[in-house]
Design a protein around this nucleic acid. Structure first.
Lengths: 215, 215
DNA sequence: CCGATAACTGACTGATGGTCACTTAATGAT
DNA sequence: ATCATTAAGTGACCATCAGTCAGTTATCGG
């Protein structure tokens, strides 16, 4: 349902916020690696710049909210994989499920690589913590469910493994995905070392992490 | 030796460039996570803003050059560890040597976390490649030396392991080192999950990586 | 239909990356 | 010692953009 010209009710405000995030995401995908300007985001969402600042305190907050939204979807996807398996699940299936979302949403990873250095910089600490807390709850939930499906895990270990998986994926992505202009030049033979097959390395790394529980 | 008011000879230009990088680094360390402005860097180096642009094409190039300088030092440090051991070296010693430099230079890691998302964005592709190529040569050299000290490595594998070590360290750092304001709040019990002991996890991860050669 | 509320606007400000016409330190020839 | 030449260095200037706020007007209850 389209939002009225003015968002008065709460659900309308949420919808407007979502529209801003979608505009921001579309522009981020289109632009090569730079965070789009607030004016551009506002224009794309059919709003004036000032309006964006009614919904987010800074530009960085817009993109941190977007990142958190998508990371939430990632957890949803993993949850679904767990529920679909009904009962014990193999490490291979879990890893495949975990990796799939990331492989199909490269822009989320691209955004994630701004997380620490950019997005958390120009935001109230309270706001950052707010997002982290929400994620903790989701992670605890998913962790508990996971521990029910994978034997041999210490309580709390599954949540931690998801965090490590995320850290690993982000680090790996930064090696595997150079800026567009650089990518072309990387075809040269003497630069083969810097070409990384993201899918292969991601699955290998995640498998190693999750198999550590055998020790 | 202090540089003349005008750098004419090549060695003087190199020295001036070094002065700019040192100024940039000092300000980066002082400021909490933001890249300092070019005007500030210039002032700190005792130069006008325009002069910085005689030595670097963009602001990002300044910091990429700084990062590359420090990463070169890291390889130097590892090389020394290898040479000090004279002959075969244990994975534990190698990992300790690799981790030590990073643990003692947290600002290099902080800068490194800007690498992909920021530093490589506003720079000629050719320039980025230039830095990568130089690093490839250094890595090949160190890799060969390493393979001479560690049995069971496929040729070229050591270089790749160093790259993976770097990716892992950067990813881990981004989880372990939130912005200053957030760090204080992370003391709360319900956020324990987000506190990472960087040293422990780094050494554990690197050991796992380098022990993979046993398979 | 009207008055009150607050969502929305966009001109404005300050900060900053990058440029370039101009200044002047350094050098070598006389 | 003096001068002409070269290019290192300068900083006023421009364009862009994050963030603000006094003013506008859509929306709704009475």
């Amino acid at each position: 349902m389209a939002v009225a010209r003015r968002a008065r009710a709460d659900w309308q405000k949420q919808e407007r916020q979502r529209e801003i995030l979608l505009a921001a995401e579309a522009l981020f995908i289109g632009a090569g690696g730079q965070l789009p300007s607030v004016a551009a985001v506002a224009a794309r969402a059919g709003l004036a710049k000032g309006t964006v600042y009614l919904y987010f305190k800074t530009k960085e907050e817009v993109f941190l909210a977007l990142l958190n939204w998508r990371l939430g979807e990632w957890l949803d996807a993993v949850t679904e994989v767990l529920e679909a398996s009904k009962g014990p699940i193999s490490v291979d299936r879990l890893v495949a499920g975990t990796a799939d979302y990331l492989l199909n949403h490269p822009d989320t990873l691209r955004l994630a690589s701004y997380g620490h250095s950019v997005l958390e910089q120009n935001i109230e600490a309270e706001t950052v913590i707010g997002y982290k807390l929400a994620m903790v709850e989701r992670l605890a939930e998913l962790g508990a469910k996971t521990e029910g499906c994978l034997p041999g895990l210490v309580p709390g270990q599954a949540s931690r493994l998801y965090l490590q998986s995320y850290a690993y994926a982000v680090g790996l992505w930064q090696m595997a995905d150079p800026p567009e202009a650089v990518k072309a030049l990387l075809q040269r033979d003497d630069l083969a070392m810097f070409r990384v097959d993201f899918e292969t390395e991601l699955k290998a790394g995640l498998t190693a992490l999750w198999n550590a529980l055998d020790n």
